[in-house]
Amino acid sequence: MTMTEILNHPLTQIVLGMVLILAFVGVNGLILVWMERKVVGFIQRRPGPYEVGPQGILQSLVDGVKLIAKQLVTPRGADRFLFWLGPMLSVTPVVVCFLPIPFSPALTTMDVNLGLLLILAFSGINVLALCAAGWGSNNKYALIGAARAVSQSVAYEIPLLLSVLCIAFQTGSLSLSAIAADQSRGLLSWNLWVQPLAFVIFFISATAETNRAPFDLPEAESELTAGFHTEYSGMGFGLFFLAEYTYMIVVCSVATVLFLGAYDGPFLPGPWWFVLKVYALILALMWFRWTFPRVRFDQLLNLCWKWLIPLGLVNLLATALVLKLVE
């Protein structure tokens, strides 16, 4: 095999893509942690991280170094295997979730024609990671956190799927590249204008699925210390942290592809638009977090079962009807 053949082999491309994705995930984790702290600072009219580097930009790097340097402690009575399985299981599938995301027509790691399904399938594994962590910790707060995570994510998976299905109906494909290509004809071709309700449902459910405030009950620190990751020190905690922020990128990327026209935009090249849109959505997530107080658990489930799921079903039905009529 010549060099170009090796480079063009799909396996090489996937491995290369994985490495790039890991780098992307790491760098983004650092940026997002810094960004979140800056945003909360600004909202509370203080500067946030300030001392390390200009505007504290190196703060999260230093924090990461601190986390890596810390001792890993396994609590007494914990299930050692499950305890350490948790953080690893929460980070690993995220990387797979990046495979089918089209940053631009050319910049897609693996153009799976079932990309949407792949992301939905692999993002569901995170719950299991939380379960393993919560159960393995031998800590009641961790266990309650895990139980909450389970019921929350099982409930919110349904409206999420319903809203995603609307787009799949409309485009007639589960391939993210196809969905993105379908919206690449300018601002007005974005799915957001056709499916605003689906977008809202998707975004709310995604917030809940990523355990972000105001739906961060699994780690509600005022009641559960830190929820499922109460017992984790050092990089165990760091991995959960990284996973949370990476999931934010994943869901925001998916939202961008599904509703905001992916890489579509004038002047700048596609990938920049993509990243810009993703970051705008993440900023909105952070804005939510520092605006809304945490919901109560019954409110959380009521919102899902009484509002989002019926609305999602109606929306899906309406979409199907309209598509049939147009046809």
């Binding site: 600004f42 909202i43 009219r45 203080r46 500067p47 520092w290 605006t291």
Partner: peptide
């Protein structure tokens, strides 16, 4: 609520 925090975001810092 979003408006309130949004406005605060752009106001000068007090620290």
């Amino acid at each position: 609520g979003l408006g309130v925090t949004g406005v605060e975001f752009f106001r000068p810092q007090l620290t």
